[in-house]
Nucleic acid binder design. Structure first.
Length: 851
RNA sequence: GCGAAAGUGGCGGAAUUGGCAGACGCGCCAGACUUAGGAUCUGGUACCGAAAGGUGUGGGGGUUCGAGUCCCCCCUUUCGCACCA
């Protein structure tokens, strides 16, 4: 090792050595316990940004930690390389998306290697390569076989700026997930995956992962799936054999229904209107509502409720009442049945609607008091409470004005009334979900082609498995019009039918890139497999993933799709578990000040607040850059970038390096045996700090509390500085204590700054590198970590007044006596009555006096 | 509007979960290095006060011998949801 710390030199040296020795390659024939550390794979945009650096620095710290603890660690990386930006580059600049993508990968791979992230590069994958997307297509066909992939015309989310379809997850909140443009609705024929078949499991299986996943991610997923228990009820249409089915979670309020309200898109509407005098008015109104919905852009504002009476009447199956049927803009076709019973007295929306259109308001739930829950049925009067009620009453309570159900509490009535409906054939208890099927069709070039063909004779024909992959053509005309560019590539489109050999056309839609990322981490485990996406036997050894790390922006996209995919893979026998990821960490964003303002936003090119990782590496070294991002904030917090912070990291590394240099000669030659002589009190203090630090960092790592681990390393170093022994003259005992501290420091620094750690480890006289031994992570000795004496704070009436020194095993009585004997304490309690003395063993004494 | 989380020095953040508030770092101040300093080293750094001492974890109340931590009300910020029947 050199006298001075030259990061570039050290980093090059070790990156090369790691690569030559295959240091990070995970092997199958290995008896060590396994650990799968996974970071969300990047899109190859061309440049690594600080968010990537943070993500991979966290994952790498964990991977190194586990490796040093003796685990066989799987730590792979790949490229989420299909998607929009490549195609945008093609449209705008005429470059070939494949070339653009491959060049970006080369550049970013170089950046990752310069960062020294310990990936097993032999397992690298890229979604845009046929050997990968072949298996996307394979999975698609499997889903098609099982009826889980289907095509239908539907209203889809359309981003007018990017000219593309978006899934519901990608247009959450009504805006495009990528560019923030308000989303429009369009009618298109599209491929869907039946994620709704798994809605119940997506909710129920959260139990299995709740210990390891952030609560907020599970909450968002749970909201997204939107499980809701209630009942379907059929309202017969008067003078007709038609029925209107509504969904309600509050069947107990059904006697308060004063209208049935349909969404403007409700399929029954045209038939219902057939004989209505108001037909044309209603149709005009419904048309207007549909249009407003399709182009709605001011999402912040709640739209004012509007409705129109259709003139049609329906019959409440419980009360026999005749109710008007309305059409209104606040009823959604997508949820429930597209029709609701309007109960103004007990639903805010219905109340508002009833107020506006002067519909009657009938109260049927009374607030429950303790006695009422047991009271006899209240006499029913079908009164209109519109005058008295100022707000809807939406709590559960006791039924009134509800026929035979009067007097029953809501929860009981809900169960009994659903059963009653079922017995009488006009309804049933039901569970509905908010989640919709996953629209995976994209009218895009740069994605995996949907592997089906259309034959004039045979209709839609799946591409046979042995004809996969359906390979993307080299290029196409990129017009950016929203039509799939593949449609213009004749040699792609024109094919022969696998059934009848007649002429046929290929599907020109490609798949959503979230298909690629739904199962990629299984491919890492068996990346060369040509017979299957992966060998289930190999996958079994490594999965579920032990720790997954990435941004929380994917909480309801990638992270819900991949859970769905796993359940599908389970159902076709490829995996044996329900959940693919045991523990998930959603790391915080890396932000920087925007210009001269006080705003902190995620680094981005367009805001001009980006920090180039390459520049950081050049100026400070990869080790310092990584150390800083891990130290500056807890991993889940936002990280506000600071240029001075990283200088502190370099300073620390340089100080450690200098100390190792100072000691290396003495340590490299001397043996590591415990000395014959006694340890001095200072040496014992150093050893105590060493073992306390080992214990702290080892346990911090389990929670990924990396910032406090770094702080602990710094404390250990400060203690070493204070120890201030001279390498030339130090006693054997002192040298032993220093060696113990320095070796622990170096090994525990490795997850944060691996290059300098390897260099220093070598400098300390250990050839072969840190991974030469199966298990290198130090183990804390609790005996040595224990304090020899305790400084116990003494409070008088809760205020800190003094401290007493005590042995760690001091008895409560002795501690109390010592506190009461303390001079300062005595001067304060003299002349006062001691009411009580609280002794917390090993912690504190509080003396309560009367003042 | 609904829901959730969070408010600790100039800044990022610690605090063994009810027991010494401010670890560690950044910044700042002072000093040293017989020149320079955007290098390095040493010391200091919550606030008020000369000191003794007092005050202090968004504000107000409460529980407790003891509250950053628990409970209630309020304020602020961030995030999520957007008529989900």
């Amino acid at each position: 090792m050199d006298e001075k710390y030259f990061p570039e030199q050290i980093e090059n040296k070790w990156q090369q050595r790691w690569s030559e020795t295959g240091a990070f390659e995970a092997r199958e024939n290995d008896s060590r316990p396994r650990f799968y550390a996974l970071e969300m794979l990047p899109y190859p945009s061309g440049f690594l940004h600080m968010g990537h650096v943070r993500n991979y620095a966290i994952g790498d710290a964990l991977a190194w930690f586990k490796r040093l603890q003796g685990f066989n660690v799987m730590h792979p990386i790949g490229w989420d390389s299909f998607g929009q930006p490549a195609e945008q580059a093609a449209i705008k600049r005429g470059v070939n998306p494949r070339d653009w993508t491959e060049e970006n990968i080369v550049h970013m791979r170089g950046q990752l290697q310069r960062l020294g992230i310990s990936y097993d590069w032999s397992r690298e994958i890229a979604a845009h390569r046929p050997e990968y997307y072949k298996w996307d297509q394979w999975f698609f066909l499997k889903m098609l076989e099982r009826g889980l992939a289907y095509k239908k015309v539907s209203q889809v989310n359309w981003c007018p700026k990017e000219q593309t379809v978006l899934s519901n997850e990608q247009s959450s909140g009504g805006i495009c997930w990528r560019c923030g443009t308000p989303v429009e609705k369009r009618d298109l024929e599209q491929w869907f995956l039946r994620i709704t078949d798994y809605a119940e499991q997506l909710v129920a299986d959260m139990k299995q992962i709740e210990a390891g996943w952030p609560e907020k991610v599970l909450k968002r997923q749970s909201d997204w799936v939107g499980r809701s228990e209630g009942a379907f009820i059929d309202f017969a249409v008067k003078d007709s054999d038609k029925k209107i089915r509504v969904f309600t979670t509050r069947i107990d309020t059904i006697y308060g229904a004063t209208a049935v309200v349909l969404s403007a898109e409700h399929p029954l509407l045209p038939e219902l209107l057939k004989d209505s005098a108001l037909k044309s008015d209603v149709e005009t109104f419904a048309e207007k509502v549909r249009n407003e919905k399709a182009i709605r852009t001011d999402l912040a504002e709640e739209v004012e409720k509007e409705g129109l009476n259709t003139g049609v009447l329906a019959i409440n199956p419980f009360s026999g009442d005749t109710l008007p049927v309305w059409v209104a803009n606040y009823v959604l076709l997508e949820y429930g049945t597209g029709a609701v019973m309007s109960v103004p007295a007990h639903d805010e929306r219905d109340f508002e609607f009833a107020q506006k259109y002067s519909l009657p308001i009938r109260q049927v739930i009374a607030p429950a008091t303790h006695d009422q829950l047991r009271s006899e049925p209240v006499a029913t009067t079908a009164g209109d409470s519109s005058a008295e009620m100022k707000h809807s009453f939406t709590d559960y309570g006791v039924l009134i004005n509800s026929g035979e159900w009067g007097g029953k509490p809501s929860d009981v009535a809900i169960k009994e009334m659903a059963a009653h409906a079922q017995q009488n054939g006009f309804g049933e208890a039901a569970v509905t979900y908010r989640i919709r099927d996953w629209g995976v069709s994209r009218q895009r070039f740069w994605g995996a082609p949907v592997p089906v063909i259309y034959c004039d004779n045979c209709g839609m024909v799946p591409v046979p498995y042995d004809q996969l992959p359906v390979v993307l053509p080299q290029t196409a005309a990129f017009t950016g019009t929203g039509e799939s560019p593949l449609a213009g590539v004749a040699e792609f489109v024109n094919t022969t039918c696998a059934n009848c050999n007649g002429p046929a056309r290929r599907e020109t839609d490609t798949m959503d890139t979230f298909v690629d990322s739904s199962w990629y981490f299984f491919r890492y485990l068996d990346p060369q497999n040509t017979n299957a996406p992966f060998d289930p036997e190999i996958a079994k050894q490594w999965t579920p993933v032990d720790q997954y790390i990435g941004g929380d922006s994917h909480a309801v996209m990638h992270l819900i799709y991949t859970r769905f995919w796993n359940k599908f893979m389970r159902d076709i026998g490829m995996v044996s578990f329900d959940e693919p990821v045991k523990r998930l960490l959603t790391q915080g964003m890396v932000t920087n000040r925007v210009g001269d303002t006080d705003e902190w936003k995620a680094m981005s090119k367009s805001l001009g607040n980006g920090v180039d990782p390459d520049e950081m590496i050049a100026a400070f070294g990869a080790d310092a850059a990584r150390l800083f991002v891990l130290f500056a904030a807890p991993v889940e917090n936002e990280l506000r970038w600071s240029d001075t912070g990283i200088e502190g990291a370099v300073r620390f590394l340089r100080r450690v390096y200098t100390m190792i240099w100072k000691w290396q000669q003495r340590l490299a030659t001397g043996g590591g045996e415990p000395p014959a002589t006694e340890f001095s009190s200072e040496a014992r203090t150093l050893r105590r700090k060493t073992h306390q630090t080992i214990a702290k960092i080892t346990s911090d790592f389990e929670q990924l509390h990396l910032n406090t681990s770094v702080a602990a390393l710094m404390e250990l170093f400060n203690q070493l500085s204070d120890f201030n022994a001279d390498p030339a003259r130090a006693s054997d005992a002192d040298v032993f204590a220093v060696r113990e501290a320095l070796e622990a420091l170096v090994v525990m620094l490795t997850p944060f700054s691996p290059h300098i750690a390897e260099e220093m480890w070598e400098g300390l006289g250990h050839p072969g590198g840190l991974l030469a031994e199966a298990r290198r992570w130090p183990i804390a000795d609790p005996e040595l970590a224990r304090r020899e004496e305790l400084e116990i704070p003494v409070q008088v009436n809760g205020k800190l007044r003094s401290r007493v020194i005590a042995a760690p095993d001091v008895s409560e009585d002795d501690l109390r006596a010592a506190a009461l004997a303390d001079d300062r304490v005595r001067s304060l309690i003299d002349g006062h009555e001691v009411v009580k003395v609280i002794v917390v063993p090993r912690r504190l004494v509080n003396i309560v006096i009367k003042s």
